[in-house]
Nucleic acid binder design. Structure first.
Length: 1045
RNA sequence: AGGCCUGUAGCUCAGUUGGCUAGAGCGCACCCCUGAUAAGGGUGAGGUCGGCAGUUCGACCCUGCCCAGGCCUACCA
């Protein structure tokens, strides 16, 4: 049974706009007061209202929308060039995107508010393996791949590319909507997509510039290789599975026994010689082998037989490609006699290795740091002819088959001496490049050895070679020990077969100046050293502090340690491999002549770029070479390579005899040239004032943008690099879907709305890692509501106010004080925006709302707003200040809280639903010009002290309601005399203030003891309260306000 | 394993070139107001400044080591 309403028929339902009842004691008169009234609701209801704001903004200026009208309106304003790093077009946006996009939007909106033209073109990285991999998986699982796989190469790739494009388009659309839901402002109608034809053409034009500078070359590089599919594989296409392999310990005979013994500091005489003669000769009759300190031999005799270096490998099949052995210069190495043989290995591993092989007689003869072994030569166990150096390289024959340094050599496994085959391993490759060793790979695409291998291995599969090589070594006496063991090994994700590391020809951007092959190129005379240029630009901006101008060519870092981080990475980075063997990407427009020579010149790349601009990169797969090169004129190409090609010439190759290359560009090259494809193509300005991304982009986009820009334009593409940290959970652990501690942006928007999320982002120390938890958004919501309610209270007291500028008021007025504080706040906030210091913006705005306004000024002026005659000068003056601050505050808040600031601003201006006005079309307000009296500072100190006294009095006397109190303020300095006592009383929240020039401290008095009555309207006891004509007890002010004498 | 970075109250953050009893807001507890009311105001309790050692008359701040965490490399012969 439900309870019927207890309201009697005819009774008035309680009205929401609170009437002037209650208040005074019962039985007394009820007097009307000026109650607050506003349409701006206390409850934000962001989840529903934000989409409405979005819709309104998109309809502004007859459908042009907010972004477009702003940019058009600011056409001649100074530009702030900001550039978006493209997220990958895959999946829903996550917490990282939330922070990144909000921070970027703070930049865009605050720059616009500062009067700049800040164009922002959002972009997406559309090509690349993650999409291709996903699409392939879907095709395979859907049973559709077999049909596609049977097509000719170009057609197969086109089929895959069509699917990839659809996939990318889908996620660009999805993510774009999600980003706009975060209320971010940008040219979402015209984003940049790395798969757009114009973008692709612009990328190729940068490539052409780099080719022209002689920075692009073709060389060998080891890649993961699937023998089953005869293709290179990316990391993402590998699956690691356990596999049983043969591991071998092999002795490599030293070429010069004496040199080895010298390195170990052994005396230059043979074992068996008379012991007595041993002493003074050590190190004195010969040159030390190395500048490093001599080895720590005991000065004992040197063995008669030739020593060897013992290496360990789990891939015996790579031994034919061995060109060096690596030691760690810092580790200690031992010369060991093992069952009659003398060999070298890491001192710390002697016991482990010999025990594994069950060696019986083990004696360490001497030890020496690895540094002393560098340069020692050895004899390859079964290869005698020096291998070819490798495409486009020059090798140092003195380094072949010698001991080299590598700090990746550890003492965890093996012997501490690492077999090095640059053609078969990434680290070996790096070492090979550094030491000018051959990059040699005798293994062909089908996994068999080619003609350069020893005859007993030619045509043999590498898997069979493991045993063959091991047997050979055993027979020749080089094998110390072998055993099978199980380890995790990469497998091809599609064929499930084991992969190998194999050298293939790839395209590189050189970072250390001109490689041999690039010499003689057109324009190469002024070729650049990218590493030096990059380091110089990173260093050039050092020692600039926030706000100061960045020197030409220099880069400013926020935070400053980013400089160090980028510098370290630039110092150690290898040449950039820009080619990939995939379908979903932008082809590298290189051709192959019938003789197998690569053909690509600056002019030929520009010619293909022209076609790509018209038809997109699909053209590479659908058009024949002569069509792709239709804009190319070999006769006018100054590049020497152009001689290879001459249509119709007897000496050259006609274009239609060329073969198209199969490589696509690394996607990092595509996004790394966005400064050209977006900023320059769209005339937005170059270089950018700011790039803003996560700190992982020091390795990624910052570098991939810096290098091509330096190569092509000679200057960095950005003046400032700002980085933010990563999202971690509330315990500081990384967030991931698999752990299940991730927070969905969707959920946040549904529970809290975008403005609250943005308010939270603004509060972060974004340069560090950021802890996230659902609870934090509730807290942010509370703080948001405080700001909202402060705005609401001001709005509700402006309902009857018509603003007009140019009001003069005294410097001692409350208005002069509060507007003075507001001006300081405004300056502080604008400076913080300019410094990307949103935390300070957030804090300053919050504290102003909470402390200056809510707790102080608004509390003080409440009485005059409610009880003064509505149009009294004092009340209008207060409203003037309220209006000025509400308007100004909305502008200051607008970059952080686009919806709420606009909602409040429109409420202030009483904008009707169809009204186009918006706070976002404005700029920050100029200073109010208020000139607060110099005495305010000490006046406020006195008030604070008196406030404390009042608290004490409340605790000790019967005063509970501050309006029952009067306060005698000390004023020895005579500062307060020029202030209105009533203003000071209102700041204290008491009924009456007396200024006492002789008092030391504030004194509180109970006004009831004076017999002062409380006013029935304002509840104040100001000493003027008396019975009025209508019988009510009113103060003079209130009597006048209601028209009673 | 290496490079860079972080670690101050339950939470988010301040702490200027080493020098006062280490601050603020939120949250929490208690109180006031009931004409901003699913609001507003006030008061208070919370910290061995990640740990250990060192330099110094004096260290949250400088140095070293360790612990925990993050990003990026390298994960291998």
């Amino acid at each position: 049974m439900s309870t019927p309403s207890s309201t009697p028929p005819g009774a008035q339902a309680p009205d929401k706009p609170l009437a002037a009842e209650g208040g005074g004691a019962t039985g007394k008169h009820k007097y009307p007061v000026n109650l607050p009234k506003t349409a701006f609701p206390m409850k934000a209801n962001l989840v529903q209202n934000e989409p409405a704001s979005l819709k309104r903004w998109s309809g502004l200026a007859a459908g042009k929308g907010l972004y477009t009208s702003l940019v058009v309106e600011r056409a001649s304003a100074p530009a702030f060039v900001f550039h978006d790093g493209p997220p990958y077009a895959n999946g829903n946006i996550h917490m990282g995107h939330l922070m990144n996009k909000c921070l970027k939007d703070f930049v865009v909106r605050s720059q616009m508010m500062a009067g700049k033209r800040c164009a922002f073109v959002p972009g997406w990285d559309c090509h690349g393996l993650p999409i291709e991999h996903k699409v392939m998986t879907d095709l395979i699982e859907g049973g559709k791949y077999d049909k596609i796989a049977a097509l000719p190469d170009d057609q197969r790739k086109m089929a895959v590319r069509r699917e990839c494009r659809k996939y990318a388009e889908k996620f660009v659309k999805l993510q774009g909507e999600q980003m706009q839901r975060l209320l971010t402002l940008g040219d979402y109608a015209h984003p940049y997509l790395t798969m757009d034809p114009a973008y692709e053409g612009a990328v190729l034009e940068v490539l052409a510039d780099l080719v022209e500078q002689g920075l692009v070359y073709r060389a060998l590089k080891p890649v993961h290789w699937s023998i089953a599919n005869e293709t290179a594989l990316a990391e993402a296409e590998l699956e690691y599975e356990d596999r049983e392999d043969l591991s071998v310990y092999v002795d490599f005979e030293a070429l010069d026994a004496d040199a080895v013994y010298d390195a170990f500091g052994l005396a230059k005489k043979l074992e068996g010689d008379d012991e007595d003669e041993e002493e003074p000769l050590t190190g004195s009759l010969r040159e030390p082998p190395l500048p490093a300190p001599a080895g720590r031999g005991e000065g004992g005799p040197r063995p008669a037989q030739r020593p060897s270096f013992m290496i360990w490998t789990t891939t015996p099949w790579t031994l034919p490609a061995n060109v060096g052995i690596a030691v760690n210069p810092k580790h200690e190495y031992a010369l060991v006699r093992v069952d009659g043989n003398v060999t070298v290995m890491a001192a710390g591993l002697v016991e482990k290795v010999t025990a594994a092989a069950n060696a019986e007689d083990v004696r360490v003869l001497a030890t020496t740091p690895g540094a002393n072994l560098l340069g020692l030569r050895y004899k390859h166990p079964f290869v005698s002819n020096p291998p070819p150096c490798g495409l486009g390289r020059v090798c140092d024959p003195a380094h072949l088959w010698s001991v080299v340094a590598a700090d990746y050599v550890t003492l965890e496994d093996g012997t501490g001496i690492v077999h090095t085959a640059p053609g078969h391993g990434a680290e070996d490759f790096a070492t090979g490049l550094r030491e000018h060793l051959p990059i040699y790979c005798p293994v062909q695409g089908d996994g068999t050895y080619d003609g350069t291998a020893p005859d007993w291995l030619r045509g043999v599969s590498v898997w069979d070679a493991n045993k063959k090589v091991t047997d050979w070594l055993r027979n020749s006496g080089h094998l110390f020990y072998d055993h099978t063991f199980t380890h995790s090994y990469p497998h091809d994700w599609r064929s499930k077969t084991p992969t190998i590391f194999r050298c293939t020809e790839q395209w590189f951007v050189g970072v250390d100046g001109l490689p041999e092959t690039a010499r003689g190129r057109a324009g190469a005379a002024e070729g650049r050293n990218l590493r030096e240029m990059a380091l110089a630009s990173v260093d050039a901006g050092a020692n600039t502090t926030a706000g100061t101008a960045v020197p030409q060519q220099g880069v400013k870092f926020v935070p400053e340690w980013g400089r160090n981080r980028l510098r370290g990475m630039l110092e150690s980075r290898p040449d950039w491999c820009i080619s990939r063997q995939r379908a979903w990407g932008l082809p590298i427009p290189a051709f192959t002549t019938p003789e197998g020579a690569a053909f690509m010149t600056a002019a030929s790349v520009r010619a293909v770029a022209k076609v790509v601009r018209e038809k997109g990169s699909d053209a590479w797969f659908t058009l024949p070479p002569q069509e792709l090169l239709k804009h190319y004129d070999a006769a006018s190409d100054k590049d020497p390579l152009a001689k290879l090609l001459a249509e119709g010439s007897r000496h050259g190759v006609p274009a239609h005899h060329l073969k198209k290359g199969n490589d696509i560009l690394d996607v990092w090259f595509e996004s790394g040239t966005s400064w050209n494809a977006v900023l320059r193509e769209r005339n937005l300005g170059y270089p950018a004032d700011l790039y803003l991304e996560g700190s992982d982009q020091h390795r990624g986009w910052f570098q991939s943008s810096l290098l091509p820009a330096l190569g092509a334009t000679g200057q960095p593409p950005f003046r400032t690099l700002l980085t933010h940290g990563f999202m971690v959970d509330k315990h500081g652990k990384k967030m991931s879907k698999s752990i299940g501690n991730d927070i969905k942006v969707e959920d946040l928007l549904k529970d809290h709305g975008a403005d609250v999320c943005r308010w939270w982002v603004a509060s972060l120390a974004y340069e560090n890692d950021v802890k996230v938890d659902m609870e934090f958004f509730s807290l942010a919501g509370e703080s948001y509501r405080k700001v909202r309610n402060t705005l609401r209270f001001m709005l509700s007291n402006l309902d009857d106010y018509q603003h007009s500028a140019g009001l003069n008021f005294s410097g001692t007025s409350l208005e002069a004080w509060v507007l003075g504080v507001f001006d300081a706040l405004s300056a502080r906030v604008q400076a913080a925006y300019a410094d990307y210091d949103y935390r300070t913006v957030h804090l300053a705005l919050y504290e102003f709302c909470s402390q200056t306004l809510s707790a102080t000024y608004l509390a003080a002026v409440k009485d005059r707003l409610y009880c003064d005659k509505p149009d009294s000068p004092r009340r209008r003056q207060t409203q003037h200040a309220l209006w000025t601050m509400t308007d100004g505050l909305c502008r200051l808040l607008a970059p952080l809280l686009p919806h709420t600031a606009d909602e409040a601003w429109r409420a202030l201006h009483k904008a009707a639903p169809g009204d186009d006005r918006s706070v976002h079309l404005l700029t920050f307000a100029p200073p109010t010009g208020a000139q607060p009296d110099e005495g305010w500072s000490s006046a406020m100190d006195t008030i604070a002290a008196a406030s404390k006294a009042l608290e004490d009095a409340k605790a000790q006397t019967g005063i509970q309601n501050p309006l029952d109190a009067g306060v005698h303020l000390p004023d020895k300095a005579g500062v307060l005399a020029r202030f209105e006592a009533i203003d000071l009383a209102d700041l204290l929240g008491v009924s009456k203030v007396w200024i006492d020039t002789s008092a030391e401290a504030a004194r509180v008095e109970d006004l009831r003891a004076r017999g002062w009555e409380a006013c029935g309207r304002s509840w104040k006891r100001d000493g003027t309260v008396k019975k009025r004509a209508d019988g009510g007890m009113l103060s003079d002010r209130d009597a006048a306000a209601v028209g009673l004498a």
